[in-house]
């Protein structure tokens, strides 16, 4: 058990907070493990938003899989595992809270970050109740989102 416990290793930022493509993590023994790209599930029904975020994240060592609805997201989940998910609260077909509940049943260990509108505090509280890792209000800076993703990942990743 103890040997698996990881130590906090900050994501190194190179030039204005952009991460190196190769992510490194250190075990408590100090060994550098093979670095991997982070797999992110990005769910939002605004295509323009999803596209630009995915593009920018790919430059920061994150492979973002784009899903334009809850259904898309669930389909994507069948094919592969994700390290973290970012879910918009307000979507037309299936809203963020509903998707969050399903995700938490299917893959309880995957952290989910919610994107909310400003002032929708009840939804935020509800999201936290259903096990969301945290929430961000839209429109948010990419750096803020990156910060949250970093916090959400299990230590050692």
């Amino acid at each position: 058990m103890e040997s698996k416990q990881s130590q906090t290793v900050p994501w190194k930022q190179v030039q204005k907070g952009i991460l190196k493509k190769q992510v490194t993590a250190m075990t408590e023994e100090g060994n550098i493990q093979a670095s991997t790209r982070i797999k992110l599930l990005l769910v939002d029904d605004e295509e323009g938003f999803v596209n630009v975020i995915a593009n920018r994240m790919s430059k920061r060592g994150i492979d973002a899989t784009k899903a334009l609805s809850g259904t898309d997201a669930l389909k994507a989940l069948r094919g592969q595992d994700f390290d973290v998910a970012v879910v918009d609260l307000k979507m037309q077909e299936m809203d963020g809270i509903e998707l969050l509940r399903i995700l938490k049943k299917m893959v309880p260990e995957m952290p989910v970050i919610m994107l909310t509108g400003h002032g929708s505090e009840r939804a935020e509280e509800e999201g936290m109740e259903y096990g969301a890792f945290d929430y961000l209000t839209k429109p948010c800076e990419l750096d803020e989102l990156m910060q949250k993703i970093r916090e959400a990942l299990p230590r050692g990743r």
Binding site: Q15, I18, E46, V52, R56, H118, G119, K138, P139
Partner: peptide, 27 residues
């Protein structure tokens, strides 16, 4: 106003995002 604000948030987010993307590319 709240309705408008909600609706404006998305395009603004995309605009800011795209600007960021251009910044990324300029690197």
């Amino acid at each position: 106003a709240a309705g408008i604000a909600h609706e404006i948030n998305n395009p603004v987010a995309i605009m800011v995002g795209e600007a960021g993307w251009i910044e990324d590319l300029l690197e």
